[in-house]
């Protein structure tokens, strides 16, 4: 029962670690270094969450003041998508978070710009976006969970209780 509590408790946790697939690791960007992580991995058509960390190039110390903007260039050369990355929704004040929407599969160029009192800089990476597909792992886990729940339910409630059992359990 306690193990079931653990499974339910932690299984229900949402991803909120400012993590994901690393795309940039301490990439020099003017006076700063920029790190970036994307989620989900691999990226698919639809929403993508981007976490950005900005540090001072000299010391590596995390910064919270610079303004950060993310620009996503579509593969077909259409107008880029500009999104401000902010601390809103970030677990710690040291991460910047942004949500992008990929409308088409292909190679997208993601550019991150940071501006602050130290100056400004940018860093970029390429992201291959694939067609959206169903999450088979998730559906498999849900199916397995249902089978286990039905089995437990059958043992719990599917058999009539004996007279002795009824008396003993109040």
């Amino acid at each position: 029962m306690i193990a079931a509590l653990a499974a339910l408790l932690l299984g229900g946790r949402v991803w909120a670690h400012g993590g994901g697939a690393p795309q940039l690791t301490n990439e020099p960007a003017g006076p700063y270094t920029i790190s970036a992580w994307t989620n989900p991995d691999p990226p698919a058509v639809g929403a993508l969450h981007l976490t950005v960390g900005v540090a001072l190039a000299d010391t590596g110390e995390a910064l919270t003041e610079p303004q950060v903007e993310v620009i996503a260039f579509p593969p077909d050369g259409a107008a880029p998508q500009r999104v401000a990355a902010t601390h809103e929704g970030a677990l710690t004040p040291y991460f910047y978070e942004a949500d992008l929407l990929f409308s088409a599969p292909g190679a997208w160029r993601i550019q991150i710009e940071a501006r602050g009192v130290e100056g400004e800089g940018n860093a970029a990476f390429m992201l291959t976006v694939r067609e959206a597909t169903p999450n088979y792992l998730l559906w498999g886990a849900v199916g397995l969970g249902l089978v286990v729940a039905l089995w437990l339910g059958w043992i719990l409630f599917g058999q009539p209780a004996s007279k002795d059992e009824k008396t003993r359990m109040g």
Partner: peptide
Amino acid sequence: ALRYAWVHDLEHLSFFTTGLLFWW
């Protein structure tokens, strides 16, 4: 675990569950 959400959840879940079983 730091890259995939479900792996990270599995990590915490296995720490907690094995801890519960051991200390039980």
